[in-house]
Design a protein around this nucleic acid. Structure first.
Lengths: 135, 135
DNA sequence: TAAAATACGACCATATAAGTCCTAATTTTA
DNA sequence: TAAAATTAGGACTTATATGGTCGTATTTTA
């Protein structure tokens, strides 16, 4: 628990790599996968998700690839996480995340609040962290 | 990702329950499992781990059970997490957690530092949070 | 000695994560 | 127009982690 998934690691690696190039530079998934020794297929899917969310722009065909859509300083880690993980992922307590109504101690629960506060802080940190901090 | 495991949830529920009783009061795993509708066997193991680490004291035999060893204010959530999860669990990046030497970008990695800082903050929060805040 | 509790290892089922494979579709260029 | 290089994306497999169960031993008390 409390680990970023490989997908997110790969996304950060790729975006950082792209951020280190010049504006508008095109990168292929293969090139990045090779350079960092990460599985091509997996990285490809990750980049497809990022493209779908508009964080990177894709170009198909020969000499195709991806470019960063925006300035790295606008690329929040929180957004990257949400783009890649389908489920609500930063949610340290499950009752808040999925089924408050099934909670056993419902109204009298005094565990939830401190953890929700903690979670809010974590969310904020991921929100304030951008790719710029990683180049 | 970024969710507390059920085991830890159960530990928090149990410890909170015990903290709400009077000092020295004995509670059985069964009693707590029943009250909160959590699987007895699982809770039993969780409590065994807590006992092994000395956070609660166990009494075997008929009319046995567990008591809190210390004041709830000394029961840090960080300690509870570490008692129950075997692996280094709050470690958002894997290179720090297990194999820095295998890292692909080793010396030139600029991703690690911001995440390590974030992790430090999270650790600190879990360290400052005690059972007292949950009763 | 029986009952009620902890102790603990082994096991199983399921879910999630990680990775692979295959087949389009698109674009460029020889 | 055909081949090559790329993105797009679904289906599948494998590995690992999680959650839960089971069986048996041990301890203590009545």
């Amino acid at each position: 628990m409390f680990q970023l998934s490989k997908k997110i690691e790969y996304a950060l690696i790729a975006l950082r790599h792209m951020a280190m190039g010049h504006a508008g530079q095109i990168f292929t998934a293969k090139e990045i996968a090779d350079k960092y020794h990460i599985p091509y297929d997996l990285l490809a899917k990750v980049m497809q998700k990022l493209a779908k969310k508009g964080y990177i722009t894709s170009y198909q065909g020969l000499h195709g690839g991806y470019t960063l859509t925006r300035n790295p300083s606008e690329l929040k880690v929180s957004a990257i996480i949400n783009a890649i993980e389908e489920k609500q992922t930063v949610a340290i307590i499950q009752c808040e995340a999925e089924s408050p109504e099934n909670c056993i101690i419902h109204s009298t629960c005094t565990i939830k609040n401190p953890l929700v506060r903690l979670q809010t802080t974590i969310n904020k940190m991921f929100d304030e962290l951008t790719i710029t901090e990683m180049v």
